[in-house]
Design a protein around this nucleic acid. Sequence first.
RNA 1: GGAGCAGUACUCAAGCGGCUGAAGAGGUGCCCCUGCUAAGGGCAUAGACCGGGAAACUGGUGCGAGGGUUCAAAUCCCUCCUGCUCCGCCA
Length: 425
Amino acid sequence: MLDIKFVRKNPDLVKENIKKKFQDHKLGLVDEALSLDVSLREAKLEADTLRAKRNNASASIGTLMREKKIDEANKMKSEVVEINKKLEKLEQDEESFNQKLKKIMMTIPNIIDDSVPIGKDDSENVEVKRYLEPKVPSFDIPYHLDIIEKVNGIDLDSARKVSGNGFYYLMGNIARLHSAVISYARDFMIDKGFTYCIPPFMIRSEVVTGVMSFAEMDAMMYKIEGEDLYLIGTSEHSMIGKFIDTINDKTKLPYTLTSYSPCFRKEKGAHGIEERGIYRIHQFEKQEMIVVCEPEDSASWFEKLYNHTVDLFVSMEIPVRSLECCSGDLADLKVKSIDVEAWSPRQKKYFEVGSCSNLGDAQARRLGIRIKDDQGNYFAHTLNNTVVAPPRMLIALLENHLREDGSINVPKVLRPYMGNIEVIK
RNA sequence: GGAGCAGUACUCAAGCGGCUGAAGAGGUGCCCCUGCUAAGGGCAUAGACCGGGAAACUGGUGCGAGGGUUCAAAUCCCUCCUGCUCCGCCA
């Protein structure tokens, strides 16, 4: 969400940015917002003047009553009643202008970073760099589910019976591998100086509507019946929620947090649940990182964040690449975004295992996350990035560490978390 | 989950319909006094958000949140949230 003052001063820049994102249908919104802004300020000025009159009149009624000048007081009272009648309409206008303006401002995209490549959709995303050589072994790599089933690592039949499609029982060493990845990722991030955090897994509707749009909410969030609570779709929800409406002491920044949580998603719409496997499911676990920092530091944090994910995967000997989101594929709130993709030797292509975003001050403005110094206060910048989401990343791990006999090599860094097992058979 | 009490500025706290945008105390800052220390005196100290104005300045909102009653709400009523105490129930 942009600052309306910024739009007032730079309408052309805002329009230019919309064009860069190939959302020309939104161009009209800029002028619409500006004219609503004018109407809103006019209504506000008029209403404020009336409110000032009312405050004065009410104060003098008090004085008159004390002096027992009842008649005069009653006369004033009826004046105030008149003012209130006029105000009623004006206040409605104020409210409706404000709502409309806010709604439009929510859909005007954030100004993207100059470095973001221009492109229409995800087909024009740009590979930034590859890490480790993407190898294809001489033997065939089976579908990930088959790999896991061969080592008795999953029970989908029971999960379907107990919870339905989109759930799984991870079993034995695969379950252990899953936990090992989470534990390793946690320690990896702690070593990078992040503060480990286990957040609430349910959040109030107030927070939900703060951190996402209604459409997203409908497509993703599970509601707890009879409670004003939703299961989180990612720990980012609780982690950013932690900072809603806060004024943060400049000296305490940056906040660099890494959080663990299960994630619950309806996955309604677009893709749906895959029939076979653990690529897209209703419940998974994720280690996340978020940063709340000074505006001038967000660009450098962005670089650090996605590189942490890259380093983590490289340390597990999984080839990855960084892929920059082009302008057209970039979500409206984001200034810049890079996906980390892992190599799939089966599909002979990379697939997404993490996503790193710099939101600039857009999220902070929307949620009221501010920084205070002796000059005053201003909006923080926020960033978030996946450290690792094991069920999905397990696909990459299994495919890249599969041996010809169907056993799975445990990456060295994970062995301490696996009772020093070297191979899963 | 039940019962009771509470939520006011950096902190504690008074106020319980108009004279309160908020007494008082502490803290903090500046100044004075004191050989040093302990102590004392004076002055200042609501941040935030949204408007208007070239500016000086000025209007509005704001006493946990949201509604309501009233000419007028920190103050009365309702809902919710949070904290504390007791009971119940549990890892």
